[in-house]
């Protein structure tokens, strides 16, 4: 088990190097540091010296990938790529193009992101599982049919509609909650209600439908027939066997996204004006702040891999058949 985790962690290194290489190529091949400098300094009448000075200031003074002037290993280490990515591996994100410390920003902004993402996950999970169980209890009846139609319709509605509709109805029409904004500390709760409600409703269509499929798959299994042959009641069968077994894929499906909750939701955070990591990323994208985008890509990749490892571990905890090797 420990050997397995260590191996998976080691395997993460080449993946992260690959991720860095891809983002690096994306950013610098089309848009060389010279172009960046000119853009930051203003297009017109930029002297070579000014460009060079900007580059040195921001750490773009070296060759991109390969330093022909270097000695031995330094040919690879004395480059922008190495300097920029090696620091990421120890979670030193450096400073943004505006000069702010990215690491500090991230540590500040992850809390609002979590404040939305965690309640959405928990409430959504509870609601979707209960709804799916309800549908499965009435399987092959009109309740089932009507629910499935409702779910497909909800699934077909754009998430933007839920956000805009929620803001309009709850915020503007009934003035129940503020439309957007955020406050520090516990005062933030009233700003969180709307995003959480919208997030949960937006997830019902796909979530409940998926859980329903999982439950129906389990119900068709032979061991459910065995349970009935024992004389167990429908409630016992549903909760003791079907739910118990379907929880394995549900739980591991949740575990895989757990780390990514830190990243926040790009869309709803910027719609609701929540100062989380999602809106941080969006702002960076629209300001073309590459240092932030690259840090967020790296962070996202790390969290994704972490999610995969956690999923494997959680399998061993909930499914007695799985042993890691």
């Amino acid at each position: 088990m420990i050997a397995y985790i260590v191996r998976r962690l080691l395997y993460a290194i080449p993946i992260l190097v690959g991720v860095n290489l891809i983002t690096f190529l994306l950013f610098f091949v089309v848009n060389s540091p010279d172009d960046m400098a000119r853009m930051q300094l203003g297009e017109k009448r930029v002297t070579e010296e000014a460009v060079q000075a900007w580059k040195d200031d921001h750490g773009y003074g070296k060759p991109l990938l390969y330093n022909a002037g270097g000695e031995g290993l330094a040919r690879f280490t004395d480059t922008i790529f190495f300097e920029k990515s090696a620091k990421l591996f120890v979670f030193q994100f450096g400073s943004s193009d505006e000069g702010r410390d990215i690491g500090y920003d991230i540590s500040q902004r992850m809390w609002p992101s979590l404040a939305i993402a965690v309640p959405v996950l928990i409430v959504g999970l509870a609601f979707n599982i209960s709804f799916a169980l309800f549908i499965v209890f009435f399987r092959a009846t009109y309740v089932d049919l009507a629910s499935v139609v409702l779910l497909v319709a909800m699934l077909s509605i754009s998430s933007l509609f839920y956000i805009i509709g929620g803001q309009f109805v709850l915020g503007k029409l009934f003035h129940l909650v503020p439309i957007s904004g955020y406050d520090t500390g516990l005062n933030a709760w009233k700003f969180l209600i709307l995003p959480v409600i919208v997030g949960v409703i937006g997830g019902i269509g796909s979530g409940t439908r998926w859980y329903r499929t999982l439950f129906l798959e389990e119900i068709a299994q032979d061991y459910v027939r065995t349970a009935r042959a024992k004389g167990l009641g429908e409630r016992r069968v549903l909760f003791g066997h079907v739910l118990r077994n379907a929880l394995i894929p549900i739980l591991t499906g949740v575990v895989v996204v757990l780390p990514l909750l830190f990243m926040g939701s790009l869309i709803s955070e910027s719609f609701f004006g929540i100062p989380g990591l999602g809106s941080y990323t969006i702002d960076a994208i629209s300001n073309q702040d590459f240092a932030i985008v690259r840090s967020m890509v790296f962070l996202g990749a790390v969290l994704y891999i972490l999610g995969l490892i956690l999923t494997d571990i959680s399998y061993t905890l909930v499914d007695p058949r799985v042993r890691l090797q």
Binding site: D222, Y223, A227, A229, R244, N245, D319, P320
Partner: peptide, 11 residues
């Protein structure tokens, strides 16, 4: 049943 493999709840 015929298939003891699938007739018992694996978890």
């Amino acid at each position: 049943f015929q298939e003891p493999q699938t007739s018992l709840n694996p978890v």
